[in-house]
């Protein structure tokens, strides 16, 4: 328990969490501080490319074995399964209707790549190694939850809500293409490729992440203000309980798969985090009747800050206790 508090305290005064806190405070204080849309997108492209590339290099460096395939498969299974747990828990804890509960559940089965990037950065700063292929697992876990959410909604309905166009958009959404593409480039070019561009993708990484999290703090704070009233206390409790449940499911998978402590933390983070990029877009197309104030406020305004501030150190401590390292 002391470890958890020490890790949490350490995490709280890290530049990335403080940058997020600055953005959050500025938004809640109604400051006019804002990051232009184009710059926010450019930073997200940079972070996705850097994290994907470095993951690919790590795989190239350490070689590939069966664990890559089994971990990706486990990630897909988790992404399919977690929405059902989230749906049942949210219905139990709140009065949110079936449609909105299913939309929320889809977000929790998918992943937050920013939380993943932040966790990777924390692990690196602690000198804890993780399997490079976890980037590929992150990409694989983006979409399956959307199918589970749509299934939860369309039970008993005539016709489905998924069409070929939406499926293509989900599978080929920009963040997945960039993450997987950069991973493959890193894998193909290996450490030599990294040496050529490391001045661009290694050294500035944390600084860009800080700025990006400043923006995420602003977006989360404004989301909290906008979504105030959309969530009851039960939904907020769900927003901090579900990541822990997801994290424990991720830990279980990591133990079964025999992942390293760092890999286990990342698997926990992936299972614990909730999407606010890919899934909200898919939900706006497939479930326009669902209220974005509910699912965006929960994933971005409750679960994302929870994971960033308390979740990551908690998952690190739990992985340390169960797996060691």
């Amino acid at each position: 328990m002391t470890d958890i508090f020490a890790l949490a305290a350490d995490n709280l005064i890290s530049p990335i969490v403080l940058s997020f806190a600055l953005g959050l405070a500025a938004a809640l204080a109604r400051s006019d501080l804002s990051i232009p849309e184009a710059i926010a997108k450019a930073m997200s492209i940079y972070l996705l490319f850097a994290i994907g590339f470095k993951g690919g290099v790590s795989v190239s460096d350490h070689g590939v074995d069966l664990s890559l395939g089994t971990t990706i498969l486990a990630g897909i299974v988790l992404s399919f399964a977690i929405p059902f747990v989230a749906f049942a828990l949210l219905r139990l804890l709140s009065r949110i209707d079936r449609l909105n509960a299913a939309a929320v559940a889809g977000h929790y089965g998918s992943i937050s790549i920013v939380t993943f990037v932040a966790a990777t950065s924390v692990l690196q700063s602690k000198g804890i190694a993780a399997e490079g292929f976890m980037v590929a697992v992150a990409a694989a876990m983006e979409a399956p939850a959307i199918l589970s959410a749509l299934w939860l909604v369309s039970r008993g309905e005539a016709g489905g809500r998924m069409d070929a166009g939406l499926m293509r958009e989900i599978m080929l959404n920009g963040s997945i293409v960039l993450l997987v593409g950069a991973f493959l480039i890193g894998w193909i070019t290996g450490p030599e490729g990294l040496a050529e561009i490391d001045a661009f993708i290694v050294a500035p990484f944390k600084g860009v992440l800080c700025l990006f999290l400043l923006d995420m703090g602003l977006v989360a704070g404004r989301g909290m203000q906008k979504g105030r009233g959309a969530l009851g206390i039960g939904a907020v409790v769900f927003g901090v309980t579900m990541p822990v449940i997801g994290g424990l499911l991720g830990l279980l998978a990591a133990v079964i798969l025999g992942l390293s402590p760092g890999g286990a933390v990342l698997m926990m983070v992936l299972a614990a985090s909730a999407s606010y990029i890919a899934v909200p877009a898919a939900m706006r197309v497939a479930l326009p009747e669902a209220n974005p104030s509910i699912y965006l406020t929960l994933s971005l305004g409750v679960t994302f800050p929870f994971n960033l501030v308390l979740g990551i150190p908690l998952y690190m401590a739990l992985a340390g206790m169960v797996i060691g390292g």
Partner: peptide
Amino acid sequence: RSGTWTRAGQISRAE
């Protein structure tokens, strides 16, 4: 009717 929104900081196309 769905509240206020701004393009600033948007990284998702959802909003």
